[in-house]
């Protein structure tokens, strides 16, 4: 049961794309809409959204991206550097944080937090230097550090690995990044 629930967002995401392309095939007169995430393409290298969707540890992130209406945006040409907190990272947040964030009335806050995880530009692992700052989509800076043994952290969160996507790079991180409070 739990598994099914976990996969629901994914299934529906795909189902939605399917529906859009079916429409275009059968109804000649009705225009078709639907963002780039609906493009049916099993050949191209996956984009950052599909990397997250295909991951087993990013269910919460994918659901949050949907709630924030950012699935299509991140399916765009980019380039993006996405710091992708795992489900465990979200689970570390205080109780009911995520629960509240995905409520429609908190969409702007959720967007702000997710934007703090995205940089417009593709920073590949070999380009990361100790102390490098990136100005994220929400206009706040994050700081990247590289330890002597080559381990990368972002604002202290550990980078667990990286995945090269067609429109950027996804860094898997173990902690959700919270933007600095604006006074």
């Amino acid at each position: 049961m739990k598994k099914l629930i976990l996969y629901l967002p994914l299934l529906l995401l795909l189902a939605c794309g399917q529906q859009a392309s079916d429409n275009s095939a059968v109804t000649a007169s009705a225009p078709v809409g639907g963002g780039q995430s609906n493009v049916k393409d099993d050949t191209s290298k996956p984009d950052v959204v599909r990397v997250a969707v295909n991951s087993n540890v990013h269910k919460t992130l994918v659901a949050a991206l949907q709630a924030a209406d950012y699935v299509d945006a991140l399916s765009n040409a980019g380039p993006f550097t996405v710091f992708a907190p795992t489900d465990d990272a979200f689970a570390k947040l205080p109780a009911s944080t995520v629960e509240n964030l995905v409520k429609p009335e908190n969409k702007a806050t959720l967007q702000h937090i997710l934007e703090y995880h995205v940089y417009v530009g593709n920073i590949r692992e070999e380009q990361i230097r100790d102390g490098m700052t990136l100005n994220q989509v929400n206009l706040d800076n994050v700081t990247l550090n590289v330890s002597a043994d080559g381990k990368i952290t972002i604002n202290g969160a550990n980078v667990l690995g990286s995945v090269s996507a067609s429109n950027g790079t996804v860094y898997v991180i173990d902690t959700v990044l919270l933007p600095p409070d604006k006074k």
Partner: peptide, 10 residues
Amino acid sequence: IILMLGLLSV
């Protein structure tokens, strides 16, 4: 949370 997110995303 996941259950709720799941439902929400449904």
